[in-house]
């Protein structure tokens, strides 16, 4: 199934598409949601609500405005941020100081997909100062202004670090693609 079929299916409210999208992206979205709400149970709720919204809003998705993943991420991120503003979340937060560590909270083990094992090392090599800004902006929906206030670094620096960080990611993932192609050619040849 290609991306056009996916988008068409989504527009028609096809349940099978949600099944496929879930298998493909739920892990990535869940990983981001959990960074925002910092609680497994809430993150599950948010993921569930997000996918229902994705299904309901499918007909509104416009491929010319952005990628499917970005659109799904926006829905998930907004749902997560809304959750953190809810009274329930505030109660929870005040009752127990959340000392959040994903690895301690998860009672089933996270095995990275094989195709990503090799990537981990390299992307982990992305300098923390870039990674922090990408994570805050992309995953948690901070504006550049908010990052500037939150981290107390000049706005110009926030912008240039985001730009450099994204450039490094781009380079890394395009090199990755080239090396996979080279590997394939090697195997076939």
């Amino acid at each position: 199934m290609n991306s056009t079929d996916l988008v068409n299916g989504l527009k028609n409210g096809d349940k099978k598409i949600i099944d496929l999208l879930y298998d493909q992206y739920a892990g990535a979205l869940y990983g981001i949601i959990i960074k925002i709400v910092k609680n497994e149970e809430l993150a599950e709720d948010v993921l569930q609500d997000s996918f229902i919204k994705i299904w309901k809003n499918g007909p509104k998705f416009n491929a010319s405005k952005g990628s499917l993943f970005t659109w799904m991420l926006n829905i998930s991120r907004n749902t997560a941020i809304d959750k953190t503003r809810s009274s329930h979340y505030r109660q929870l937060e005040s009752k127990q100081k959340i000392d959040f560590q994903i690895t301690n909270h998860l009672n089933w083990s996270y095995t990275p997909k094989t195709e990503h094992i090799g990537l981990n090392k390299v992307v982990n090599g992305l300098d923390d100062k870039y990674r922090e800004i990408i994570d805050l902006i992309y995953f948690q929906g901070f504006t550049q202004q908010e990052v500037h206030e939150h981290l107390n670094i000049p706005l110009g620096t926030v912008k240039s670090r985001l730009r450099i960080g994204l450039r490094e990611l781009r380079t890394f993932f395009s090199v990755q693609r080239v090396s996979i192609i080279v590997l394939l050619i090697g195997l076939l040849g």
Binding site: G31, L119, V123, L166
Partner: peptide
């Protein structure tokens, strides 16, 4: 390219949710 890269980046940091979700 940015979209593709951040998508890959996000997928790379995926955490599988519980099957009940």
């Amino acid at each position: 390219e940015i979209r593709n890269a951040v998508e890959q980046y996000a997928i790379q940091q995926a955490i599988p949710p519980h099957p009940r979700v």
